[in-house]
Design a binder for these strands. Structure first.
Length: 206
DNA sequence: ATATCGATTATCT
DNA sequence: GATAATCGATATG
């Protein structure tokens, strides 16, 4: 049985939290709806001194959760279309966070497909559910303001993180995706060779 | 297979 | 007024 991650787990640097979140599980419990998926791709955002981080703009109405206690959901809306999910890290007052970029569905595949508004035609379609930060948020019904600030260490919140004993084999670290500032820093953590990791599907070079 | 582009809005300059 | 931690559709090789 999965058990929730602790506050102390998140009260560390974004790099360590990101690294250790790989292989953990995100769960959604809303009445009859139960979803779960394994974390396979995340990015670390380092706080006010990271030009690519929303926290670089300071503690505003939008970013206040980042400056609050660790282990809480920071949900933002982007490109007029998509929501994305982060978890706050470090101590209260320090704005590090981790962005969830891709998950591997474990339970509730049909419900995720319905939330995404797509029909599955085969196993090859599964990555369309949760591969990409906007996709996984839609699959889990994560929106702002409703889910912004919710406690991801508490099953009672209906959106939480847990571990089930899974141990990742190979972890790779690469530059972050989709940003223009500080784009060279290696802060993206992925489970190597997991088909649910977002981005290029074809291997270039070797 | 890769490249380009439109959608649509909160936030900041 | 411009841009953005994205996605999906369309065009082209």
């Amino acid at each position: 049985m999965p058990h929730p991650l602790t506050r102390a787990f998140f009260a560390r640097s974004p790099r360590r939290v990101a690294r250790d979140l790989l292989g953990k599980i995100l769960l959604r419990d809303a009445g009859k709806l139960h979803l779960s998926a394994r974390v396979v791709e995340v990015e670390a955002y380092l706080g006010i001194n990271d030009p690519a981080a929303h926290a670089a703009a300071g503690n505003t109405a939008r970013t206040s959760v980042l400056f609050g206690p660790p282990g809480h959901a920071y949900v933002y809306f982007i490109y007029g279309n998509h929501y994305c999910l982060n978890v706050s890290c470090e101590r209260e007052g320090k704005a590090g966070s981790v962005l969830f970029r891709a998950l591997e569905p474990l339970f509730g595949v049909q419900e995720m497909a319905r939330a995404r508004g797509i029909t599955l035609h085969g196993p090859g379609d599964l990555p369309k559910l949760t591969s990409g930060p906007g996709r996984l948020a839609q699959a889990f019904g994560i929106t702002r303001p409703r889910d912004n600030g919710c406690d991801l260490t508490s099953p009672a919140s209906g959106l939480w993180l847990a571990e089930d004993g899974f141990r990742p084999r190979t972890i790779q670290i690469t530059p972050r995706i989709g940003i223009s500032k500080a784009a060279d820093q290696p802060l993206r953590y992925i489970l190597a060779e997991n088909p649910f990791v977002s981005g290029r599907k074809t291997q270039v070079g070797v």
